[in-house]
Design a protein around this nucleic acid. Sequence first.
RNA 1: GGGUAGAUGCCCGAGUGGCUAAAGGGAGCAGACUGUAAAUCUGCCGUCAUACGACUACGGUGGUUCGAAUCCACCUCUGCCCA
Length: 405
Amino acid sequence: MKMNIFEELQKRQLIAQITNEEEVKNLINAGKAKFYIGFDPTADSLHVGHFMALCLMKRLQMAGNTPIVLIGGGTGHIGDPSGRSDMRSMMTKEMIDHNCECFKKQMERFIEFGEDKAIMLNNADWLLKLNYVELLREVGACFSVNNMLRAECYKQRMEKGLSFLEFNYMIMQAYDFYYLNTHHDCNLQFGGDDQWSNMLAGSDLIRKKTGRDAHSMTITLLLNSQGKKMGKTASGAVWLDKNKTSVYDFYQYWRNVEDADVLKCIRMLTFLPLDEIEKMENLKGAELNQAKEILAYELTSLVHGEDEAKKAQASAKALFVQGGDDSNMPTTKIETNENEISVIDILIQCNLTQSKGEARRLIQQGGVSVDEEKINSIDYKVPIEKLKEGIKIKKGKKIFHKAII
RNA sequence: GGGUAGAUGCCCGAGUGGCUAAAGGGAGCAGACUGUAAAUCUGCCGUCAUACGACUACGGUGGUUCGAAUCCACCUCUGCCCA
């Protein structure tokens, strides 16, 4: 017997909180949900967190439900304070519009839009038109400040300070749900677990205003075994835009997850059948490397397409297993007028180090090799002739880069 | 509006006139060990310079001083208390 969608979500441990389990279950299993997920345009590309939400959308769409993608062109003007310890920097209208456009393009690759399929809306279309006093009279009475202040999502900010601007975010999000419910028959909202308070506010508002039930369900946040959000590196988020995070780096991010997190990631992020995943659960120790490879391949393939995933996998294997093929390695064109160039300058031009001092240090500590040969002198220079064919630079153990002229 | 505490490097945080590029921790980077894992150990960790050294930096702007993260004035921002 085929597993129903709710059961599948449960088995994948994607469900965090639900306002009413029975009703939501019936709704989505019957394909009768018209649900929305909101995406605030905080950057010019989606990242892994958004990806999870998009996957959920796809799963629900495949089960016959109708998704509404809500782009936060209006809420982006405010900034969601949920779970944050500092205020978001304010974005200009131009930035927000630009980001919305970027989001749209990326989403079209995951979700099918069109007649009887998914629709995409932008809350700027109604939020920006609101009149302050009218809004206050319309929904203001439905919100209890006392309750709002108790909300989990503001906890962190109660210590460091919360501006009135951000405090209103919840009201805007609740209003969105109410608007979608009354104008588009939207009966369900999904979101990350950090959105729970905001979503509840929406369900409450709808009940108070219309007497109808509209439910909310959150998906588990993807945390690693240390309790930190996954999809973040020291240099920032792992982006879905390959100009911001190269396909190779994207692949490597997942190839390198900790043992403790692999299966969770496979379960929550990939579309692999559950029985296949169950088989992997017996893997132990070094065998888990196989699972990591699968994870990296599956995700890269979902985000960047099969061809790109194969390329990334091939170059990773070539590099780590034999050290041969370099055709898909990140490459930088070196600029110089001399007939030779120092490794230090190459490292900087390739963006492998931030400063000359760092590059020097790296070499002194034995962390750099060129074409498989360890560099021991900071004076090491590469002749132009060699650069014409391209050289392979290795920084540390895992970072490879090609430099060519 | 009144009172009060504060703003230090990527983050947290010590430092209250010279010994401070600024303790300590975290993050990060490299090396050893490994399985492209984790844990552990070692080194590094403002910029430029092979090095000597130079420059930039303790919210902002001025000032006092031979010398200021440290003292003074004003400004900006934030927490807390009172209204």
